[in-house]
Simulated assay, not measured.
Amino acid sequence: MAKNFKRSYKFALKTSIYISVFLTLISALFLYVANAFEWYFLLIYAVSCFIFSFFVIQYRVEHFIYKNIQKIYNNVRLLDASTLRPGQVTSDMATLTREVEKFAEGKKMEIEALQVRETYRKEFMGNVSHELKTPLFTVQGYIETLLDGAMKDKAVRKKYLNRAAKGVDRLIYIVKDLDMITKLETGDLHLKMQNFDMVEVVQGVFDLLEMKAAKKNITLTFDTDYEPVWVHGDIERIQQVLTNLVVNSIKYGKNDGTTEVNISDYKMDRIIVRVSDNGEGIEKKHIPRLFERFFRVDKSGSRKEGGSGLGLSIVKHILEAHNEKIFVESVFGVGSEFSFTLEKSKKQSEIGSETNIF
Protein backbone atom coordinates (compact mmCIF):
# COMPACT_ATOMS: atom_id res chain seq x y z
CA MET A 1 0.00 0.00 0.00
CA ALA A 2 1.03 3.62 0.08
CA LYS A 3 4.18 4.78 1.86
CA ASN A 4 3.10 8.23 2.99
CA PHE A 5 -0.14 8.70 4.95
CA LYS A 6 0.77 11.29 7.62
CA ARG A 7 -2.33 13.37 6.99
CA SER A 8 -4.60 10.32 7.39
CA TYR A 9 -3.00 9.56 10.79
CA LYS A 10 -3.99 12.99 11.99
CA PHE A 11 -7.49 12.52 10.66
CA ALA A 12 -7.82 9.08 12.33
CA LEU A 13 -6.45 10.39 15.63
CA LYS A 14 -8.95 13.25 15.90
CA THR A 15 -11.87 11.09 14.77
CA SER A 16 -10.95 8.35 17.27
CA ILE A 17 -10.82 10.87 20.10
CA TYR A 18 -14.26 12.19 19.20
CA ILE A 19 -15.74 8.68 19.05
CA SER A 20 -14.01 7.56 22.25
CA VAL A 21 -15.15 10.62 24.19
CA PHE A 22 -18.69 10.20 22.94
CA LEU A 23 -18.86 6.47 23.79
CA THR A 24 -17.19 7.02 27.17
CA LEU A 25 -19.70 9.70 28.13
CA ILE A 26 -22.59 7.50 27.08
CA SER A 27 -21.16 4.56 29.02
CA ALA A 28 -20.50 6.73 32.08
CA LEU A 29 -24.08 7.95 32.01
CA PHE A 30 -25.35 4.38 31.67
CA LEU A 31 -23.19 3.14 34.58
CA TYR A 32 -24.21 6.09 36.74
CA VAL A 33 -27.87 5.34 36.20
CA ALA A 34 -27.22 1.64 36.95
CA ASN A 35 -25.29 2.55 40.13
CA ALA A 36 -22.23 0.62 38.87
CA PHE A 37 -19.88 3.52 38.09
CA GLU A 38 -16.15 2.62 38.40
CA TRP A 39 -13.60 5.14 37.08
CA TYR A 40 -10.86 2.59 36.26
CA PHE A 41 -13.36 0.50 34.31
CA LEU A 42 -14.40 3.61 32.43
CA LEU A 43 -10.74 4.48 31.70
CA ILE A 44 -10.03 1.01 30.32
CA TYR A 45 -13.17 1.25 28.26
CA ALA A 46 -12.17 4.67 26.87
CA VAL A 47 -8.65 3.51 25.92
CA SER A 48 -10.03 0.37 24.30
CA CYS A 49 -12.54 2.43 22.27
CA PHE A 50 -9.80 4.80 21.18
CA ILE A 51 -7.36 2.11 20.06
CA PHE A 52 -10.05 0.12 18.26
CA SER A 53 -11.50 3.22 16.59
CA PHE A 54 -8.08 4.53 15.56
CA PHE A 55 -6.97 1.38 13.76
CA VAL A 56 -10.34 0.75 12.12
CA ILE A 57 -10.63 4.36 10.94
CA GLN A 58 -7.00 4.52 9.85
CA TYR A 59 -7.28 1.31 7.86
CA ARG A 60 -10.55 2.34 6.22
CA VAL A 61 -9.32 5.84 5.40
CA GLU A 62 -6.04 4.55 3.93
CA HIS A 63 -7.81 1.92 1.91
CA PHE A 64 -10.50 4.28 0.63
CA ILE A 65 -8.27 7.28 -0.18
CA TYR A 66 -5.39 5.22 -1.56
CA LYS A 67 -7.70 3.19 -3.76
CA ASN A 68 -9.25 6.28 -5.32
CA ILE A 69 -6.06 8.30 -5.61
CA GLN A 70 -4.29 5.30 -7.11
CA LYS A 71 -6.88 5.34 -9.89
CA ILE A 72 -6.06 9.01 -10.57
CA TYR A 73 -2.32 8.25 -10.73
CA ASN A 74 -2.87 5.26 -12.99
CA ASN A 75 -5.06 7.27 -15.36
CA VAL A 76 -2.61 10.16 -15.41
CA ARG A 77 0.35 7.86 -16.09
CA LEU A 78 -1.41 6.66 -19.21
CA LEU A 79 -0.72 10.18 -20.50
CA ASP A 80 3.01 9.74 -19.83
CA ALA A 81 3.00 12.10 -16.88
CA SER A 82 6.69 12.32 -16.11
CA THR A 83 5.96 15.01 -13.51
CA LEU A 84 4.11 12.48 -11.36
CA ARG A 85 6.92 10.25 -10.17
CA PRO A 86 6.30 6.52 -9.61
CA GLY A 87 6.18 5.43 -5.97
CA GLN A 88 5.05 8.84 -4.75
CA VAL A 89 1.34 8.11 -4.34
CA THR A 90 0.08 10.05 -1.34
CA SER A 91 -3.16 10.70 0.47
CA ASP A 92 -1.98 14.24 1.23
CA MET A 93 -4.48 16.35 -0.71
CA ALA A 94 -2.21 19.41 -0.76
CA THR A 95 0.69 17.41 -2.22
CA LEU A 96 -1.60 15.74 -4.72
CA THR A 97 -3.05 19.10 -5.74
CA ARG A 98 0.43 20.54 -6.32
CA GLU A 99 1.49 17.57 -8.40
CA VAL A 100 -1.68 17.64 -10.49
CA GLU A 101 -1.33 21.41 -11.03
CA LYS A 102 2.29 20.90 -12.08
CA PHE A 103 1.21 18.14 -14.43
CA ALA A 104 -1.60 20.29 -15.86
CA GLU A 105 0.81 23.20 -16.45
CA GLY A 106 3.23 20.91 -18.26
CA LYS A 107 0.47 19.51 -20.44
CA LYS A 108 -0.79 23.02 -21.17
CA MET A 109 2.66 23.99 -22.46
CA GLU A 110 2.82 20.79 -24.53
CA ILE A 111 -0.60 21.52 -26.04
CA GLU A 112 0.42 25.09 -26.89
CA ALA A 113 3.62 23.80 -28.53
CA LEU A 114 1.60 21.24 -30.49
CA GLN A 115 -0.81 23.94 -31.62
CA VAL A 116 2.10 26.06 -32.88
CA ARG A 117 3.52 23.04 -34.69
CA GLU A 118 0.14 22.21 -36.16
CA THR A 119 -0.23 25.76 -37.47
CA TYR A 120 3.28 25.59 -38.95
CA ARG A 121 2.54 22.16 -40.46
CA LYS A 122 -0.64 23.40 -42.13
CA GLU A 123 1.14 26.48 -43.46
CA PHE A 124 4.08 24.39 -44.65
CA MET A 125 1.84 21.87 -46.42
CA GLY A 126 -0.07 24.73 -48.04
CA ASN A 127 3.17 26.29 -49.25
CA VAL A 128 4.52 22.98 -50.57
CA SER A 129 1.22 22.38 -52.36
CA HIS A 130 1.30 25.85 -53.94
CA GLU A 131 4.96 25.61 -54.99
CA LEU A 132 4.48 22.21 -56.61
CA LYS A 133 1.05 22.96 -58.04
CA THR A 134 2.16 25.91 -60.18
CA PRO A 135 4.81 24.09 -62.28
CA LEU A 136 2.74 20.89 -62.36
CA PHE A 137 -0.27 22.69 -63.82
CA THR A 138 2.02 24.51 -66.24
CA VAL A 139 3.49 21.25 -67.52
CA GLN A 140 0.07 19.61 -67.62
CA GLY A 141 -1.43 22.52 -69.57
CA TYR A 142 1.25 22.53 -72.26
CA ILE A 143 1.19 18.75 -72.67
CA GLU A 144 -2.62 18.64 -72.91
CA THR A 145 -2.52 21.43 -75.50
CA LEU A 146 -0.01 19.45 -77.55
CA LEU A 147 -2.08 16.28 -77.29
CA ASP A 148 -5.19 18.17 -78.38
CA GLY A 149 -3.60 18.89 -81.77
CA ALA A 150 -0.98 21.59 -81.31
CA MET A 151 1.72 18.94 -81.78
CA LYS A 152 1.26 19.11 -85.53
CA ASP A 153 2.61 22.66 -85.61
CA LYS A 154 6.41 22.30 -85.24
CA ALA A 155 6.94 25.87 -84.02
CA VAL A 156 4.23 25.59 -81.36
CA ARG A 157 5.40 22.11 -80.39
CA LYS A 158 8.96 23.25 -79.77
CA LYS A 159 7.85 26.33 -77.82
CA TYR A 160 5.44 24.37 -75.60
CA LEU A 161 7.92 21.57 -74.96
CA ASN A 162 10.54 24.13 -73.92
CA ARG A 163 8.06 25.73 -71.50
CA ALA A 164 7.06 22.32 -70.13
CA ALA A 165 10.74 21.50 -69.65
CA LYS A 166 11.18 24.70 -67.62
CA GLY A 167 8.26 23.62 -65.43
CA VAL A 168 9.91 20.22 -64.88
CA ASP A 169 13.22 21.93 -64.04
CA ARG A 170 11.44 24.02 -61.41
CA LEU A 171 9.89 20.89 -59.89
CA ILE A 172 13.29 19.20 -59.75
CA TYR A 173 14.79 22.34 -58.20
CA ILE A 174 12.19 22.39 -55.42
CA VAL A 175 12.48 18.65 -54.72
CA LYS A 176 16.29 18.85 -54.58
CA ASP A 177 16.14 21.74 -52.11
CA LEU A 178 13.63 19.88 -49.93
CA ASP A 179 15.82 16.78 -50.04
CA MET A 180 18.86 18.82 -48.99
CA ILE A 181 17.04 20.40 -46.04
CA THR A 182 15.84 16.97 -44.92
CA LYS A 183 19.37 15.58 -45.07
CA LEU A 184 20.76 18.59 -43.18
CA GLU A 185 18.13 18.25 -40.45
CA THR A 186 18.66 14.50 -40.05
CA GLY A 187 22.44 14.70 -40.32
CA ASP A 188 22.56 12.55 -43.46
CA LEU A 189 24.39 15.21 -45.49
CA HIS A 190 28.08 14.87 -44.65
CA LEU A 191 30.30 17.91 -45.00
CA LYS A 192 33.64 17.67 -46.80
CA MET A 193 35.77 19.93 -44.64
CA GLN A 194 38.87 21.53 -46.14
CA ASN A 195 40.84 24.76 -46.19
CA PHE A 196 39.99 27.24 -48.95
CA ASP A 197 40.30 30.90 -49.88
CA MET A 198 37.09 32.78 -49.02
CA VAL A 199 37.94 35.67 -51.34
CA GLU A 200 38.24 33.30 -54.27
CA VAL A 201 34.85 31.73 -53.45
CA VAL A 202 33.16 35.13 -53.29
CA GLN A 203 34.70 36.16 -56.60
CA GLY A 204 33.48 32.89 -58.14
CA VAL A 205 29.93 33.64 -56.99
CA PHE A 206 30.18 37.16 -58.45
CA ASP A 207 31.29 35.73 -61.80
CA LEU A 208 28.47 33.17 -61.74
CA LEU A 209 25.77 35.77 -61.05
CA GLU A 210 27.19 38.62 -63.12
CA MET A 211 24.64 38.20 -65.94
CA LYS A 212 21.73 38.00 -63.49
CA ALA A 213 22.87 41.19 -61.74
CA ALA A 214 23.39 42.96 -65.10
CA LYS A 215 19.66 42.62 -65.90
CA LYS A 216 18.94 45.08 -63.07
CA ASN A 217 22.25 46.93 -63.47
CA ILE A 218 23.31 45.85 -59.96
CA THR A 219 27.02 46.00 -59.17
CA LEU A 220 28.56 43.02 -57.33
CA THR A 221 31.67 44.14 -55.47
CA PHE A 222 33.96 43.80 -52.45
CA ASP A 223 34.14 46.74 -50.05
CA THR A 224 37.93 46.74 -50.51
CA ASP A 225 40.75 44.72 -52.05
CA TYR A 226 41.59 41.55 -50.11
CA GLU A 227 44.54 39.25 -49.81
CA PRO A 228 43.58 35.54 -49.64
CA VAL A 229 41.51 34.74 -46.53
CA TRP A 230 41.83 31.06 -45.63
CA VAL A 231 38.94 29.38 -43.86
CA HIS A 232 37.93 25.83 -42.91
CA GLY A 233 34.65 24.33 -44.11
CA ASP A 234 32.81 22.59 -46.94
CA ILE A 235 33.64 24.78 -49.94
CA GLU A 236 30.65 23.64 -52.03
CA ARG A 237 28.16 24.30 -49.22
CA ILE A 238 29.65 27.68 -48.34
CA GLN A 239 29.53 28.61 -52.02
CA GLN A 240 25.85 27.64 -51.93
CA VAL A 241 25.32 29.87 -48.88
CA LEU A 242 26.94 32.85 -50.65
CA THR A 243 25.07 32.16 -53.88
CA ASN A 244 21.69 32.13 -52.10
CA LEU A 245 22.47 35.35 -50.22
CA VAL A 246 23.73 37.19 -53.32
CA VAL A 247 20.78 35.93 -55.41
CA ASN A 248 18.40 37.30 -52.77
CA SER A 249 20.19 40.66 -52.76
CA ILE A 250 19.79 40.83 -56.54
CA LYS A 251 16.18 39.64 -56.45
CA TYR A 252 15.09 42.23 -53.89
CA GLY A 253 17.62 44.90 -54.84
CA LYS A 254 16.78 48.13 -56.62
CA ASN A 255 17.77 48.80 -60.20
CA ASP A 256 21.21 50.43 -60.45
CA GLY A 257 21.94 49.21 -56.92
CA THR A 258 24.94 47.54 -55.28
CA THR A 259 25.58 44.22 -53.54
CA GLU A 260 28.69 44.47 -51.42
CA VAL A 261 30.67 41.76 -49.59
CA ASN A 262 32.82 42.54 -46.57
CA ILE A 263 35.18 40.06 -44.84
CA SER A 264 36.53 40.89 -41.39
CA ASP A 265 37.68 39.38 -38.09
CA TYR A 266 34.94 38.13 -35.79
CA LYS A 267 36.99 36.34 -33.14
CA MET A 268 40.55 35.08 -32.89
CA ASP A 269 39.60 31.86 -34.68
CA ARG A 270 36.76 33.13 -36.88
CA ILE A 271 35.91 35.58 -39.62
CA ILE A 272 32.56 37.14 -40.48
CA VAL A 273 31.31 37.56 -44.05
CA ARG A 274 28.76 40.32 -44.66
CA VAL A 275 26.54 40.53 -47.75
CA SER A 276 24.78 43.90 -47.87
CA ASP A 277 22.59 45.65 -50.41
CA ASN A 278 20.70 48.92 -50.82
CA GLY A 279 17.46 47.23 -51.87
CA GLU A 280 13.96 47.43 -50.49
CA GLY A 281 14.83 46.06 -47.04
CA ILE A 282 12.73 43.89 -44.74
CA GLU A 283 10.11 44.96 -42.23
CA LYS A 284 11.04 44.15 -38.64
CA LYS A 285 7.99 41.91 -38.12
CA HIS A 286 9.15 39.54 -40.89
CA ILE A 287 12.74 39.04 -39.72
CA PRO A 288 12.04 36.25 -37.14
CA ARG A 289 10.46 34.10 -39.86
CA LEU A 290 12.96 34.70 -42.67
CA PHE A 291 14.59 31.27 -42.35
CA GLU A 292 11.36 29.26 -42.37
CA ARG A 293 10.80 26.98 -45.33
CA PHE A 294 8.77 28.66 -48.11
CA PHE A 295 8.31 31.87 -46.09
CA ARG A 296 8.15 34.88 -48.37
CA VAL A 297 7.97 38.51 -47.33
CA ASP A 298 6.22 39.49 -50.55
CA LYS A 299 4.49 36.33 -51.75
CA SER A 300 3.31 37.66 -55.12
CA GLY A 301 6.51 39.50 -55.99
CA SER A 302 8.78 36.68 -54.83
CA ARG A 303 7.07 34.10 -56.99
CA LYS A 304 7.40 36.32 -60.03
CA GLU A 305 11.13 36.38 -59.39
CA GLY A 306 11.23 32.57 -59.19
CA GLY A 307 13.15 30.37 -56.77
CA SER A 308 11.96 27.58 -54.51
CA GLY A 309 11.40 29.70 -51.39
CA LEU A 310 13.88 27.45 -49.57
CA GLY A 311 17.10 29.43 -50.09
CA LEU A 312 17.42 31.08 -46.67
CA SER A 313 16.29 27.93 -44.90
CA ILE A 314 19.08 26.02 -46.64
CA VAL A 315 21.56 28.77 -45.72
CA LYS A 316 20.61 28.47 -42.04
CA HIS A 317 20.88 24.68 -42.00
CA ILE A 318 24.25 24.62 -43.81
CA LEU A 319 25.74 27.11 -41.35
CA GLU A 320 24.29 25.23 -38.37
CA ALA A 321 25.90 22.07 -39.75
CA HIS A 322 29.21 24.01 -39.64
CA ASN A 323 28.39 25.11 -36.05
CA GLU A 324 28.38 28.71 -37.26
CA LYS A 325 25.96 31.63 -36.86
CA ILE A 326 24.00 33.81 -39.26
CA PHE A 327 22.79 37.34 -38.53
CA VAL A 328 20.30 39.67 -40.21
CA GLU A 329 20.10 43.45 -40.07
CA SER A 330 17.63 45.33 -42.22
CA VAL A 331 15.96 48.72 -42.48
CA PHE A 332 12.82 48.75 -44.54
CA GLY A 333 13.29 50.95 -47.60
CA VAL A 334 17.05 51.26 -47.04
CA GLY A 335 18.57 47.81 -47.43
CA SER A 336 19.59 44.57 -45.74
CA GLU A 337 22.73 42.88 -44.49
CA PHE A 338 23.12 39.13 -44.01
CA SER A 339 26.29 38.00 -42.26
CA PHE A 340 27.70 34.65 -41.16
CA THR A 341 30.74 33.38 -39.34
CA LEU A 342 33.33 30.86 -40.51
CA GLU A 343 36.25 29.16 -38.82
CA LYS A 344 39.68 30.31 -39.91
CA SER A 345 42.06 27.69 -41.20
CA LYS A 346 45.12 27.06 -39.04
CA LYS A 347 47.22 28.79 -41.66
CA GLN A 348 45.06 31.92 -41.53
CA SER A 349 44.99 31.86 -37.72
CA GLU A 350 48.78 31.88 -37.61
CA ILE A 351 48.93 34.81 -40.05
CA GLY A 352 46.23 36.67 -38.13
CA SER A 353 48.08 36.26 -34.84
CA GLU A 354 51.06 38.07 -36.30
CA THR A 355 49.16 40.93 -37.89
CA ASN A 356 45.64 42.12 -38.55
CA ILE A 357 45.02 41.11 -42.17
CA PHE A 358 41.75 42.98 -42.58
Score class of each variant (00 low, 15 high):
residue 56 V to K: 14
residue 54 F to H: 09
residue 136 L to G: 01
residue 265 D to I: 10
residue 77 R to S: 11
residue 285 K to V: 14
residue 104 A to H: 02
residue 122 K to W: 01
residue 152 K to Q: 08
residue 265 D to F: 13
residue 91 S to Q: 09
residue 311 G to W: 09
residue 190 H to R: 11
residue 288 P to A: 12
residue 198 M to R: 04
residue 37 F to Y: 15
residue 238 I to A: 04
residue 146 L to G: 00
residue 155 A to N: 08
residue 95 T to Q: 13
residue 37 F to T: 06
residue 315 V to Q: 14
residue 335 G to L: 02
residue 147 L to S: 06
residue 255 N to F: 04
residue 304 K to H: 02
residue 97 T to Y: 10
residue 321 A to T: 13
residue 77 R to F: 10
residue 231 V to P: 05
residue 316 K to R: 14
residue 209 L to F: 04
residue 290 L to I: 10
residue 55 F to N: 12
residue 48 S to K: 11
residue 39 W to R: 14
residue 216 K to L: 09
residue 141 G to T: 13
residue 91 S to A: 11
residue 142 Y to C: 01
residue 318 I to D: 09
residue 347 K to H: 07
residue 295 F to T: 05
residue 160 Y to L: 14
residue 61 V to S: 10
residue 269 D to K: 12
residue 275 V to T: 14
residue 110 E to M: 05
residue 199 V to D: 03
residue 339 S to L: 09
residue 262 N to Q: 14
residue 229 V to T: 12
residue 125 M to E: 04
residue 309 G to E: 04
residue 60 R to C: 11
residue 277 D to L: 02
residue 126 G to F: 00
residue 283 E to A: 14
residue 279 G to N: 01
residue 181 I to D: 00
residue 298 D to A: 13
residue 52 F to P: 01
residue 139 V to P: 02
residue 65 I to S: 03
residue 328 V to T: 13
residue 72 I to C: 06
residue 81 A to E: 08
residue 346 K to H: 08
residue 240 Q to N: 15
residue 137 F to T: 10
residue 269 D to Y: 03
residue 167 G to E: 04
residue 273 V to G: 03
residue 184 L to R: 06
residue 210 E to M: 13
residue 264 S to V: 14
residue 7 R to Y: 07
residue 127 N to C: 00
residue 60 R to I: 11
residue 111 I to T: 09
residue 117 R to I: 04
residue 182 T to I: 02
residue 158 K to T: 13
residue 328 V to M: 06
residue 161 L to C: 06
residue 354 E to C: 05
residue 104 A to T: 09
residue 6 K to F: 06
residue 188 D to R: 07
residue 354 E to Y: 12
residue 147 L to R: 08
residue 323 N to V: 03
residue 39 W to E: 12
residue 138 T to F: 02
residue 335 G to S: 03
residue 296 R to D: 01
residue 118 E to L: 07
residue 162 N to E: 15
residue 325 K to W: 05
residue 330 S to R: 05
residue 137 F to Q: 12
residue 119 T to G: 03
residue 89 V to M: 13
residue 190 H to T: 06
residue 42 L to V: 12
residue 215 K to I: 07
residue 186 T to N: 11
residue 135 P to N: 05
residue 296 R to S: 10
residue 252 Y to I: 01
residue 147 L to A: 04
residue 68 N to C: 01
residue 12 A to E: 06
residue 247 V to M: 09
residue 292 E to C: 00
residue 63 H to Q: 09
residue 92 D to N: 15
residue 42 L to H: 11
residue 237 R to T: 13
residue 23 L to Q: 09
